[in-house]
């Protein structure tokens, strides 16, 4: 009677005990540690930067899991889990440290790269500046050459003018270049130029056409024979005759000023006929390049 009841009871107890032993004991610390471990395993940088620390953490984790599977006391499980948790945290700290060090290395490389770029940039700029200053020097050289050419042109022009005026027997005086048309170029006591006088006037007209910035002052003079009024009138008429001739030859009237001085400012004593002839004259004063003439 007793045996049939005893056997099922034993079976139930055995089943309960085995169920208990197959369901591993766990603690909240162990659960927390396991989740930390999974997180560390899922972080690729942990395997890369802290493989040794992760291996030690794995050993500690295995020991805690084994204690749990063997149904050891909660105290022992927690003791092992605590160590495992610390080792997992250590692996993650080492990973963070190595990440920061990698960042430092990367930043250092970046800085070197930036400095190199900047030096290259500076060298390029210096090269450009050198090329520019060379160009500027060449331009300045060209300008100097052009200025010299202009100076030479002006000198050549002045020399040409000098030659043309020499042909007109121009004299350099205090008042500038003065050309004297002698009495022989006019008819006796007349105010018109003879052909030779016209020829001289033509040369003067040519000079004035080639030097459009210059003007002339035409001054008439006589000897002291005869009345002053007659001589004054004659000197003015002779000066005017020269102006008219120049105008006919294409020189603008406003470039020619006339003045009659009569017997004033003789160049010789009026004692001989030869000297008196010297005093009967027309003087043509040439202006400077700016058209200025100093009056008597």
């Amino acid at each position: 009677m007793k045996k049939p009841v005893f056997l099922p009871a034993m079976l139930v107890i055995a089943a309960l005990v085995s169920a208990c032993s197959t369901a591993p004991r766990t603690t909240s610390l162990l659960d927390q540690t396991r989740s930390d471990f999974v997180a560390a395993q899922n972080n690729p940088n942990v395997a890369r930067y802290a493989p040794m620390e992760m291996q030690q953490a794995t050993v500690a984790m295995d020991q805690a899991n084994a204690a749990s599977n063997h149904d050891d006391s909660a105290e022992k499980i927690d003791k092992l889990a605590y160590i495992a948790k610390d080792k997992i945290a250590l692996a993650r700290e080492v990973t963070k440290q190595k990440e920061a060090e990698a960042e430092i290395a990367r930043t250092n490389r970046e800085r070197d790269h930036m400095l190199l770029d900047q030096r290259t940039n500076e060298a390029d700029q210096a090269k450009i500046a050198a090329a520019q200053s060379q160009l500027t020097a060449q331009v300045a050289l060209g300008e100097a050459a052009a200025a010299q050419r202009r100076t030479e042109d002006a000198q050549a022009h002045a020399a040409q003018l000098q030659a043309e005026l020499a042909d007109l027997s121009a004299k350099q005086t205090d008042r500038g270049l003065v050309i004297t048309l002698g009495d022989v170029l006019f008819g006796t006591d007349q105010a018109h130029l003879n052909p030779e006088g016209m020829h001289t006037a033509q040369k003067l007209a040519d000079v004035l056409k080639q030097n459009p910035q210059r003007t002339v002052l035409v001054e008439g003079y006589t000897d002291s024979t005869g009345t002053v009024s007659h001589n004054q009138e004659l000197s003015e008429r002779r000066a005017d005759a020269v102006r008219t001739a120049l105008q006919e030859m294409g020189v603008s009237g406003d470039r020619v000023t006339i003045h009659g001085y009569g017997p004033q400012y003789p160049v010789a004593a009026n004692d001989t006929s030869q000297n008196r002839q010297l005093n009967r004259r027309v003087e043509i004063v040439l202006s400077d390049d700016n058209g200025k003439i100093s009056q008597r």
Binding site: Y82, D86, L90, V94, E103
Partner: peptide
């Protein structure tokens, strides 16, 4: 285990500070 973790945390903090300074 605690002491090793503390030391590693200090090392990490210093490395991170250096990285930030460099940045």
């Amino acid at each position: 285990a605690d002491a090793k973790l503390a030391q590693s945390k200090a090392d990490t903090a210093k490395a991170q500070a250096a990285a930030n300074a460099l940045e």
